[in-house]
Write a protein that binds this DNA or RNA. Structure first.
Lengths: 209, 209
DNA sequence: GTCTATAGAATGATAGAC
DNA sequence: GTCTATCATTCTATAGAC
């Protein structure tokens, strides 16, 4: 499990990147309490003390990991373009969320762990940024319904469905791989997954007739 | 956080039930590594040593918790009646899964944690029982498609969507409550959630025209 | 900046009185 | 069956040599 030590003259930026990358993996697998600084240090190929040189406490390191995940989340949030057609806005958003699940499964798992644990760290984000973002999208979806562009649907639960289905491919990656004969999804299987999810949801609200 | 001690003459069954109940809560919140025997003992209102009297190790206690969750999962699996119409089979299965998310959120969270961690304990279930169950349902869904009872859809991803959306209401309970102004979903809100999920998925595969 | 060594607290598990 | 006391280990975090 222990990786080779990094060269000693790595720059600060390189060390930070390596630590944060492996911290995300360990936090994803064991949650905040279950993860240990030793495990992160071993994965990063550094002495444990070096972690404390860059991050004073385990909590500070965890906060930094969460911060970076939130940035990715914001990027996906932006892809829900409120000025586009329903079909464009939703299919782009779903695709973007699926791409994130594939590219950053550990980030998604850390987020899932954090929410399962009652969101002790990200509670502020949920109450402010996420809540406001959700409200704006609910209004847009309700406008689409009023304009008869999509069928009547509870916008909130539509959003939950999109979050749940797309994040499932990251969070339950192990189950999906197991049910795929132990093989990670191939490019075409990811494409198929994205199309399947997009298809059912769009047809489910009256689009793509 | 510490609960009052139980009466000393509690029967073996009562003690087992109390321990397993609180163990599920703690394992749900912190995962296997993050949960501590002390935290479970405090929640159950027992000295830590009593836990080791009933369960030799933390792993043995965890296995028992997982075993009970699997029983509930089997119960839901049975509700997918392969001899019913697509509309009946799927809407009943979704409703059952939503009821389980409401009645056993901690069990669902333990399962989620376990899968996120790579399913070290339940790997056997995934490869045998779950895999076989999935295969039978995929065949039924493909038959429905061949008989033109539902639109063409990848059965595997349809199942993943159902699992993801229904379990989301348990696993991401905290996020959903936060976005509901901090209030747990009421009876009518659960009903609405179930109807919304069922509606989008069934319409998404060409049912309920 | 890097690393060894270690302090001080918490953890899983057990011994043994009751 | 119940509970206190405790052991061995592991954890976060720091001190201090290089």
């Amino acid at each position: 499990m222990e990786a080779a030590r990094k060269p000693r003259n790595a720059t600060r930026e390189e060390n930070l990147a390596v630590i944060l990358h492996h911290a995300e993996k360990i936090f994803a697998e064991f949650g905040f309490k279950g993860a240990t600084m030793q495990a992160i240090a071993d994965a990063a190929g550094l002495p444990k003390a070096n972690l404390h040189y860059y991050f004073p406490t385990k909590l500070a390191l965890y906060r930094e990991v969460i911060e970076r995940i939130f940035t990715i989340w914001l990027e996906a949030a932006d892809s829900f373009d409120t000025s586009a057609t329903p079909e464009e806005a939703l299919s782009r958003y779903i695709r973007k969320k699926m791409e994130i699940s594939r590219a950053h499964p550990c980030g998604s798992k850390v987020w899932a762990n954090e929410v399962i644990q009652g969101a002790p760290i990200i509670q502020d984000y949920l109450q402010t940024t996420l809540n406001e973002w959700t409200d704006t999208r609910i209004k847009v979806i309700n406008r689409w319904i009023a304009e008869e562009k999509i069928d009547t649907v509870d916008p909130r639960h539509l959003l939950y469905m999109i979050w749940a289905t797309t994040q499932h491919y990251a969070d339950f990656q192990h189950q999906i791989v197991t049910l795929n004969s132990g093989n990670p999804l191939s490019d075409s299987q990811w494409e198929n997954a994205t199309d399947s999810v997009t298809g059912v949801i769009l047809r489910g609200i009256g689009l793509k007739p």
